[in-house]
């Protein structure tokens, strides 16, 4: 009974699932018997043990993480600001929408090639991450603004609430769940698109550059090690962003409960 309850915990279930898929991976690697086609988990751990003590390993993570996080931040702020501007006036919305739609539908590789012509490849992952995330944030925040309770707007008007209170008590809490949903999707998108852009643009010292080098020397162990690093970075960054948003949401909820 106690054992069954322990197994039912989400973390335990997640751990068991992870172990299962590691087993599948190990079995597949053994069955293929070719380290170039598929390196085993043990080989990937070995690659990590070899790479992790080097300065270059962490420098590459720092290089890509800073740029991708920067692109994500630009998109989060820009998408939310554009959605707010569009909500002010139908003409502004009509003006902004085609640009956002174009960013959303144009294949990412077109932007990558264009940016390589226009600018240095060190800007690539920032710009591509921003371009991929901006339409997602814009669409979600726009939806949040549209779904705001008009009744609460009337409440604010009747009680002559100051603008700051309207924002903190009514508008931000209404939009925040939509913004959070966008960020949840956006973090993964930013990492996928950012690293893909680096693999094409090959900025020196980036994770994309390291992935490309691993491919050149057919080092599948290194390649999968960097893939695991990308997944881990994306996961950690998502936790960080969602944790910050949850803290902000609970700060908003606590607001006005005390007089001081």
């Amino acid at each position: 009974m106690i054992f069954t309850t322990a197994l039912d915990r989400p973390r335990v279930r997640g751990l068991i699932a992870a172990v299962f898929w590691l087993g599948v991976w190990q079995a597949a690697a053994l069955a293929l018997g070719n380290e170039v086609l598929l390196a085993s988990p043990a080989k990937v751990v070995g690659a990590f043990a070899r790479l992790a003590p080097t300065n270059g390993f962490w420098a590459s993570i720092g290089y890509s993480a800073a740029r991708i996080a920067g692109g994500f931040a630009i998109a989060a702020a820009g998408g939310a600001a554009l959605a707010w501007v569009a909500s002010l006036n139908r003409w502004l919305a009509a003006l902004i929408w085609p640009a956002v739609r174009a960013i959303r539908t144009v294949p990412v590789v077109c932007f990558i090639v264009l940016l390589l012509i226009w600018a240095d490849s060190s800007w690539l992952s920032v710009t591509i991450s921003a371009l991929m995330v901006l339409p997602v944030v814009y669409a979600n925040v726009e939806e949040g603004i549209k779904r705001q309770d008009e009744g609460l707007d009337e409440l604010a008007r009747v009680f002559a609430m100051p603008a700051r209170r309207r924002w903190l008590a009514i508008r931000l809490p209404a939009v925040l769940p939509h913004f959070t949903a966008a960020c949840r999707v956006g973090v993964g998108l930013a990492w996928k698109a950012g690293v893909s852009a680096e693999v094409i643009g090959l900025p020196d010292g980036s994770i994309g550059d390291r992935l490309y080098q691993a491919k050149l020397v057919l080092s599948t162990g290194d390649l999968l090690c960097w893939t695991v690093v990308i997944v881990a970075c994306s996961f950690a960054f998502e936790k960080l962003v969602l944790g910050a948003l949850a803290a902000f949401e609970s700060w908003l909820a606590r607001g006005y409960a005390k007089s001081s």
Binding site: L152, R165, A169, L252, G255, Y256, A257
Partner: peptide
């Protein structure tokens, strides 16, 4: 305002 407390709703 659903996420605020009873006190918060009066104060705001």
């Amino acid at each position: 305002i659903e996420h605020l407390t009873a006190v918060g709703n009066v104060r705001v």
